[in-house]
Design a protein around this nucleic acid. Structure first.
Lengths: 350, 350
DNA sequence: TGTTAGCACTCATCCTGATAGAGTGCTAAC
DNA sequence: GTTAGCACTCTATCAGGATGAGTGCTAACA
């Protein structure tokens, strides 16, 4: 069967109406849309076809139709195309985001939290945002200091002034001279290197150069390398989880409980981040509808994610989670604007 | 009217039964309790009295009784007394907590997260835990290093190896010598001091001693003092928020939504932490029933909090949030055991 | 051949009234 | 002081009926 223009128009009308009301939409409702002057009977025939093609479904025999995942997918795809070509400038609604970002808050986590919150409040959906991953970022500065007889701290600064530090326990004391030597060694060899290039081979070479005290020094170098690599500190901030209660189709105990605990655990959300980063398409925006999402507990939701980039290689993910009947247009628009502003502020080279 | 022993027994029976079932309990149910051989009619009379005294209430005319907040309060108070005297050794149930703690995980936040989670899973209630506040903790080590021409980082180590660091932007470059001098100055004057003693007077004295470069040096000292004081990093970890769905009286949308968002925001929970710390009684355990809680969104819940102490002055708060009909005995017992184990591990002086 | 009007049919929702059952309060008897 | 008994109240539950939204099908129409 052919999906001709008229069927397309009817499908659009069904979806649009359903997005607004959340109720199954019937043939009479559609026939009252002015721009296609057709009786409800004709619409009914077309709708039967659309159902056969899998774009809409009937919750029960005598109810109207609601869009299926396939229907949403078609709708979103065409919408994204239109937005691509006409690249809307819907900046107004997210003005406050701009203000927020302009403050350039010193604390990254504060900033991310407020972005998440603003998004949640603005859209009335749940939101999440991951801290940027440092992969690709370069080492800028490293310093070991002694705290105790047997304890050192390593302070590591990455490009973009990301601070990491960690406590190292060493089995044997180090004298000042060795410590100084180690600092020089580490800085001369590691500075400017992207962190993923700090691998076993390099560490081995370093150890060799360190000379005499190779056992204790090796221990320290290992620990430093370890703490540089440790990327388990992918923080995820969430906000507005309780917004899901605004949508009856998600608000029943079973579903709400699942979604809430996914939000609280955060563990599961990392798969979403990873998936988004791996699939980075040209627009940077990704829409998951229902079962398409990699997080199974969100199979009744739609998720819109975007990749942001601060400086070079520091990528993170923003996500909006809502019901399948979310206002895709607004959400995608909001995210696009946000991306643009982040880029403007943190100067992405492009 | 007198609250004699029989009334007391009946009240206990009502509460115990209600804790188990969550349903209003009637006179016949109580009369079947073996140890007081009374007919339902007698119980009814007594229950009428108890209602008049405010310990129990009737949801509607022909329903059984449920405990009022006042009733719960009496119950909890007598329970706490008994536990105090007989100090139960219910260690078994929390064995895994012990294992968990014994690993002495290097990362504080990881530890706190897993404690919260274990508590939530064990009790089937929601749990929260605050990171210890450093007030009273002493400064152990401080170091300034130059990263850029105009940027320094300050690494601050507190007793208990708490690390803090912050980026300082200075308007004017500092030469190595000045930096070294500053480091020496800061360490000699600040080490060993409890952080709340680092006040304006002390800072002024430091600045004076710093001599010539007093403007730029003063700037640095101010920034360092600021970042030491900054105690806005009271982290709160939560777990098991979705457990509230297990209790019908909390699971309706209105209430669930409120509680969930309180958990997500975390802001509100700090009042709970503060209140607990301020009211520290001798047992260290605090029970808030219904309206007694300082967090208004939890007026339909009960909250049990405990203060833990790692080393000296590093106090934090653990909280269990559940329905009013929570199993107080188990919760209090679990918290007590946990406290004991934390004390044993982190050697509280007492 | 595509479109429309009409009609019978289905199904969820809402309201109603009846019933059962849990539990109480009161009274009178023990 | 305790208990048995009874009338009463109130909720929860269920069935039945009405309602209305919406469909699919058929026959007529352009």
């Amino acid at each position: 069967m052919e999906l001709d223009e008229r069927k397309m128009k009817i499908l659009q009308a069904v979806i649009k109406n359903y997005l607004e009301t959340g109720e199954p939409v019937g043939s009479r409702t559609i026939s009252k849309y002015t721009d296609l002057n057709l009786s409800s009977a004709t619409i009914r025939n077309e709708m039967a076809d659309l159902e056969e093609m899998g774009y809409i479904v009937q919750p029960h025999t005598s109810a109207g139709r609601i869009p299926s995942d396939k229907g949403y997918r078609l709708y979103v795809d065409t919408m994204m195309q239109q937005m691509d070509t006409a690249m809307k400038e819907k900046t107004r609604e997210v003005e406050e985001l701009k203000d927020l970002l302009l403050e350039k808050e010193e604390k990254m986590d504060q900033l991310l939290k407020s972005v998440a919150k603003t998004l949640a409040v603005n859209t009335n959906y749940a939101s999440m945002i991951s801290s940027p991953s440092y992969s690709g970022s370069r080492l800028k500065f490293i310093q070991l200091s002694r705290v105790d007889a047997n304890q050192l701290i390593a302070v590591i600064v990455l490009e973009g002034n990301i601070l990491k530090n960690s406590m190292l326990s060493v089995s044997e004391g180090l004298d000042d001279e060795t410590l100084l030597k180690l600092n020089v060694l580490l800085n001369t060899h590691l500075n400017g290197l992207p962190i993923e290039e700090i691998n076993l081979g390099l560490v081995a070479r370093l150890k060799q150069q360190a000379g005499i005290h190779s056992d204790i020094v090796g221990e320290v170098i290992d620990a430093v390398a370890e703490s540089i690599k440790a990327d388990d500190d992918l923080e995820i901030y969430t906000s507005g989880a309780n917004n899901i209660f605004k949508y009856p189709e998600l608000a029943d105990q079973q579903k709400a409980s699942e979604i809430i605990s996914t939000f609280e655990e955060k563990q599961m959300l990392t798969t979403l981040v990873q998936d988004t980063l791996s699939k980075d398409n040209n627009t940077g925006i990704q829409v998951y509808i229902g079962d398409e999402t990699p997080v199974s507990s969100m199979k009744d939701c739609s998720v819109v994610t975007a990749t942001y980039e601060l400086g070079e290689g520091m990528k993170g993910t923003i996500g909006i989670i809502g019901p399948k009947r979310m206002d895709y247009e607004k959400v995608v628009g909001t995210l696009q604007t946000l991306m643009k502003q982040l880029d403007a502020l943190y100067g992405k080279k492009s």
